[in-house]
Write a protein that binds this DNA or RNA. Sequence first.
RNA 1: CGGGGUGUGGCGCAGUUGGCUAGCGCGCUACGUUCGGGACGUAGAGGCCGUGUGUUCGAGUCACAUCACCCCGACCA
Length: 490
Amino acid sequence: MAKEITSRAENFSLWYNNLVLKAGLAENSAVRGCMVIKPYGYTLWENMQAALDKMFKDTGHSNAYFPLFIPKSFLAKEAEHVDGFAKECAVVTHYRLRNTADGRDVEVDPDARLEEELIVRPTSETIIWNTYKNWIQSYRDLPVLCNQWANVVRWEMRTRLFLRTAEFLWQEGHTAHATREEAVEEAVRMLGVYEEFARNWLAIPVITGVKTISERFAGAVDTYCIEALMQDGKALQAGTSHFLGQNFAKAFDVKFANKEGVSEHVWATSWGVSTRLIGALIMAHSDDSGLVLPPKVAPLQVAVIPIFKGEEELNRARIACIDIKNRLQKAGITVKIDDRDNLRSGFKFAEYELLGVPVRLALGTRDLENGTVEVARRDTLTKETLPREGIETYVKTLLDDIQNNIYAKALKFRDANTFLVDSYDEFKSRIESGGFIMAHWDGTPETEALIKAETKATIRCIPIEGDMTPGKCMVSGKPSAQRVVFARNY
RNA sequence: CGGGGUGUGGCGCAGUUGGCUAGCGCGCUACGUUCGGGACGUAGAGGCCGUGUGUUCGAGUCACAUCACCCCGACCA
């Protein structure tokens, strides 16, 4: 079982795992590879959901819901798609149980075998395109812009809390368009939404780019992605947006009559982010004292701790605390008073640091006399004593400041760990200490595979912004259109 | 799926070459003293040792099977 190591430098994986457990975000369940998301972790997800959902609606999308089960024949219709997911599917073969002969147990009833097996969705393209077929006849029916919040199942060999679990929560957008241009535009737009969400809400700077053929989503023509850098120097794919071309339209025979009355296949996109973002959030910002959560998504933004000896002092402090709480709530801040009398204040301080609560206010007899309050911020672990008057305005500004500071810190870390490399020898030594490496590549899967085999580094993406200077491949010396991003990844 | 490791009160662990009433720390409950950075004392509660089948006079300890978790690979969001 996990030992009590809390230092990131010593063992990043263990630190991460302990932190998820100790902060009460999630735990392993009794079911193989599955995770229980606890209330604190789920509230974090809800906050992320709310922000994303609004962004989706602002870009014209609506939510819908499609079945959990996919008939095997649906999945088989798009050849590359089924190849990509075949190895990790949970399959429903029966629909009934019966008592065993001795009556002490239950077993699968062999008479209740399904004629066609059902696959628990690993993603919903097939079931959705089978449905869209019925929704679309004319160009007037387009575009179809749907999103669904759902769970999916991918039977991964090796799991890791939030980063890779057999079941995970996500959103998947699925859109249908009349033209190629419109679909590409949509895929890029949603990539932009993800980039903005990562930056503005999660305070994580990401590189936007296109995946190479070998890293592409199964069934896509192009896969766009956002790539984030974790504190151990490994990259994490934080979201993807796919231009699916007409692959699924052809597989499911989804056609529309254009303005000229000519029948055409529609153009598709799909895009998704998952609870993996919670893992990204933890590994990007947190420190040895615990979580560091950006105020905009933190389940609790301010903890108010009365410091007291005995009931009388508590009662006096409580009045001031309630006053502060009311004022903060009126300013739209989530706040909680922790007046548990069985714990010392020092214990509570450490606990809220573990939970990553951005701001902590402490209020004792000294403050009651002086009209002050102690304000501590999680990101810098610093504190100051300020007048209670107008504290809500101060805290409001402070939360914004913390949000910005967390981003600035992550950006600084990423920049300090992004390297321009031109020789393969330098690449090989540099990759050992992690980070993003921007290098030239000849565009061939062979070179990509060679680099991966020799260094465990993969091309995270071909950036669509930034330096577009051509050069020569660091391995083959052949021409390269632009630098691409290499890293070891999760 | 390959290699390695671990399953013992809620959590972290000890438990000798099989041996008699299964321990320790944290946490929990009660009372008292404490209370501005993870308090202390006293008294309690809580466990068929992951599961199953064997070996044995006797199994937490040995064998086989099985399930789950952790680490390293391969695979993947």
